[in-house]
Amino acid sequence: MRSARLEQALASGLLSLPAEGRIAVLRPRIGDELHDLPRERLQVITGFRPDHDWFAARGYPTAPRAEGTFAAAIVCLPRAKAHARALLAEAAQIVTAGGPVTVDGQKTDGIDAVLKDLRARVALSESLSKAHGKLAVFPAGDNLADWAARPAQVDGFTTVPGVFSADGIDPGSAVLAAALPADLKGHVADLGAGWGYLSRVVLSRAGVKSCHLVEAEAEALDCARLNVTDERAAFHWADATTWKAPRMLDHIVMNPPFHTGRGADPALGVAFLAAAARNLSPQGVLWLVANRHLPYDRTLTTLFRDVTEIGGSSAYRLTRAALPLRTR
């Protein structure tokens, strides 16, 4: 979809890339084809580890953050409005003044609203509409400086636009935090740690020897480093579904994601559960919160000998799963 719009924009002259200089591609997603762009000049910039690794495996220079100046940029629009604005502001700053900044996105990701906002602030080209999305181009400059990402303080935690639950503590995580036992001890991991809320609760237990914060989103992990300053904490920018703990763990806490794009994807949560079973010791315990409608029960019984619902709320189910059947 994205490649079809890029191909047409280049062919029609709507997007004219400078003859020299690096081209930043911000936040492309797994499966996005960039073959119409000059590969030797591209820099894929994404802090989401699965996307980062997918492009790196295909030979693209890839980094979690932009460094230096670029001749052009292409912004692959995310769904969150604040995050989209922050990426556009970043692109307008890292590109040489007057250089082309391209914004591309699906209608379901809010491209129409973003283009409307841009028209009031920059010299936006006509938009190209194709494959249920739109693309437009504007010259880099300072017009979007007030859209730049700024840290926020939420209940004593630092967050930034684009991270999960940036506006407040996730209700499911709060339910799990309240249920964690006071005598939690040993080596622990928080899979999908986000900006560190659950890990801070874990580290409030004196018996905890270490807590591994495993998070795929680099910006969320940067926030976690500010929010969790305990020397027992270790930070891992990694895909939790493939992460391997440095040693087998006594406990894992998690509030796993269950969306890829707009649609629910229970398979993602299932992959988190399997990762927990792999990384726990034979006597290890998983502490899980999940939306009640998610079909995790059967999977849990194939991964753990002892699976017990320990409470929750009308929206969330709390589960204690112990004695993993599959370990490393």
Rank of each mutant, 00 (worst) to 15 (best):
A178G: 13
A264I: 02
Q106F: 00
G263I: 01
S204E: 15
S173N: 07
I23Q: 12
D222N: 06
I310Y: 10
T302C: 06
L286N: 03
G31V: 10
E219L: 03
R121P: 05
N255P: 04
L323E: 14
A92V: 08
I111H: 02
L303G: 07
P50W: 13
A179M: 09
L15N: 04
R22C: 07
D51A: 15
I45S: 10
L184W: 13
A264H: 01
D109A: 02
L42I: 14
V253W: 04
A189F: 12
L10W: 07
Y296N: 07
P257F: 02
Q8D: 06
R317P: 05
L180H: 12
P18M: 13
D250W: 10
P28F: 03
F138W: 07
L77W: 06
L198A: 06
F48I: 00
L221E: 02
R65W: 15
K134M: 00
L213R: 05
R205Q: 12
F70H: 14
V137H: 05
G192L: 09
F304L: 06
A189I: 05
D117K: 08
L213E: 05
R79A: 01
A140V: 09
A84L: 10
S165D: 07
A321L: 12
V103R: 04
F164W: 08
D222R: 07
L118W: 10
A91R: 09
L176V: 09
F164D: 03
D167W: 07
G186H: 13
I74V: 15
H293G: 00
V253S: 04
N291M: 00
F235P: 01
K116G: 03
L268D: 02
G110F: 00
A72E: 12
P38C: 14
L226T: 12
A57L: 11
A9C: 00
E33D: 14
D109Q: 01
W287L: 05
L6S: 01
